[in-house]
Design a binder for these strands. Structure first.
Length: 458
RNA sequence: GGCGCGUUCGUCUAUCGGCUAGGACAUAGCCCUCUCAAGGCUGAAAGACGGGUUCGAUUCCCGUACGCGCUACCA
């Protein structure tokens, strides 16, 4: 073991997620944040959020808020970093500011230090760093030992710009200065930065400071293997926030992209992941994003979700879809939502499954109405209506018994009653268990809806 | 073009030289069933290619192909 690794081993881990506020949080960025968070929690270290808002033109407070809200939604809370999207706003941690736009003096001082030692020089109004020409060895914790040779262009001129002629320092420079000043011990980032790491290491050496350990994680690709860009469906985290995914399912799925618990478990306990997670086990190849599997996982999470959590998310989804459940008794809402818990894969589906509980006026599915609301069924449904009306106890078991004996008495299959009744009471041909849904609706609503449907049957 | 990284079922992955290559999603069939799901059972489905090393290679080495990344006064 060299002295650098020994020093780092005794040092408390400090990792950071350093997104640029572009207006959306890329799913790959979310995974990078997750891996940094997991490593910090695993080692008892510190997870830092730093906003790389050097490109003033396209940065805004709203764009930063998208990132903050995305991370909060995922449950990836940071130990140091901004508390709001405002660059000059409050922050926690003593190594700030955590916005690059507020760190200009720091960069200026570092530039002058390099200039004064002739490690950098001015050319055409820009400031360039004297890059070494020997290969740079990167001991990456994920990829292994990488020896970065000069490219053909670099062989001609290895130096690179660190401050543009307009006075703006470039990414490679500010990134290194910040990691240095903030005492970052491990840089966990996308593999797209691997080649550039040589520059970063050279810069650290120029400052006379040992570089942090690097861990370059593979990229997340589209289903077809192409690069996932802003426009691709599922590339932006807000897709999941809006479409009714449970954050815990998204986090679980992201854990499985490039990392695995080495057993056959798919549904993971985050606490266990924190215990097991480590950098060397991260896979070295890119992964494709399988939305179908995430959807399945989300359904798994919903099915096994704690009741309170499920109701909270379901009610929230309904509200977003224009259904105010506050107008109904809490017990009714809970009972109604419970009948759908095992049916939905997404919270955005809750309205389709449970909407009828909260609105009396709804249209019938045309095809189903044509099939089930026929004259032939009218006397059958009418008979059942009377049986239901006479029931002393309107619970699922009684309803089932009543419906089945009525069907038997009429000499028809159970389905011949079930389908028209379901359609009459819900407007749809699919939905929760019929008997349970009738129980929740209650006798009054059920009879009303049956009457309304009977009026349309022949 | 140069530099770097990668390559196990369609997809995510297990395997750290002994494999009849395991699991999950998706998919096919069957069962269950009031719809839709869920669940149960069964099936099909993989080591990019070519050379080495080895008693033995998915596993180690080299080459080729393919994919991805970087190669900016973008981040």
């Amino acid at each position: 073991m060299d002295s650098t690794s020994r020093r780092l081993m005794t040092m408390k881990v400090r990792v950071r997620f350093a997104p640029s506020p572009t207006g959306y949080l890329h799913i790959g960025g979310a995974r990078t944040a997750l891996f940094n968070w997991l490593y910090a929690r695993h080692t008892g270290g510190t997870f830092i959020l730093r906003i790389e808002d050097t490109d003033a033109a396209r940065n805004s407070q709203e764009a930063v808020n998208v990132i903050l809200e995305g991370l909060r939604w995922l449950g990836l809370h940071w130990d140091e970093g901004p508390l709001t999207g405002e660059a000059t706003g409050p922050a926690k941690g003593d190594r700030g500011p955590y916005f690059q736009s507020q760190r200009k003096d720091l960069y200026q001082r570092r530039v002058e230090a390099l200039l004064s030692r002739d490690l950098a020089y001015e050319k055409d109004g820009a400031i360039r760093f004297r890059m070494r020409t020997e290969p740079v060895v990167i001991d990456d914790l994920v990829v292994g030992r990488v020896t970065r040779e000069l490219t053909d262009r670099e062989a001609l001129d290895p130096d690179f710009v660190i401050v543009r002629s307009d006075g703006q320092p470039v990414f490679h420079f500010v990134n290194v200065v910040d990691d240095l000043e903030m005492g970052i011990t491990h840089v966990i980032r996308g593999e797209d930065h691997l080649s550039n790491t040589a520059k970063h290491i050279a810069l650290f050496e120029a400052f006379g400071v040992p570089p942090p350990r690097y861990a370059h994680i593979p990229l997340i690709l589209n289903q077809d293997g192409s690069k996932m860009s802003k426009r691709d469906r599922g590339a932006s985290l807000d897709t999941y926030q809006r479409e009714g995914f449970a954050p815990e399912a998204v986090v679980n799925f992201l854990c499985l992209l490039g990392w695995s618990p080495k057993n056959d478990k798919t549904k993971l306990d985050l606490k266990e992941v924190v215990e097991m997670f480590d950098l060397p086990q991260i896979l070295r190849h890119n992964a494709r994003f399988d939305m179908t599997k995430l959807l399945w996982l989300n359904g798994e999470y919903i099915r096994s979700m704690a009741p309170d959590r499920y109701h909270e998310l379901a009610v929230h989804a309904l509200a977003r879809d224009g259904i105010d459940t506050n107008a109904f008794p809490v017990a009714y809402v809970r009972a109604a939502l419970d009948t759908c818990k095992e049916k939905v894969k997404l919270f955005s589906e809750v309205k389709q499954f449970a909407g009828f509980y909260f609105q009396d006026e709804f249209d019938y599915e045309p095809e189903a109405a044509q099939k089930h609301f026929i004259a032939e069924n009218r006397p059958l449904v009418a008979r059942l209506r009377e049986v239901f009306a006479g029931l002393a106890s309107f619970d699922a078991a009684s309803l089932e018994a009543a419906l089945k004996s009525t069907a038997a008495g009429l000499g028809v299959k159970v389905g011949q009653l079930v389908h028209p009744v379901r359609l009459a009471c819900t407007g749809r041909s699919i939905g929760p268990s019929l008997y349970h849904l009738l129980e929740v609706l209650g006798k009054e609503r059920v009879l009303q809806r049956l009457d309304r449907a009977l009026a349309r049957m022949g």
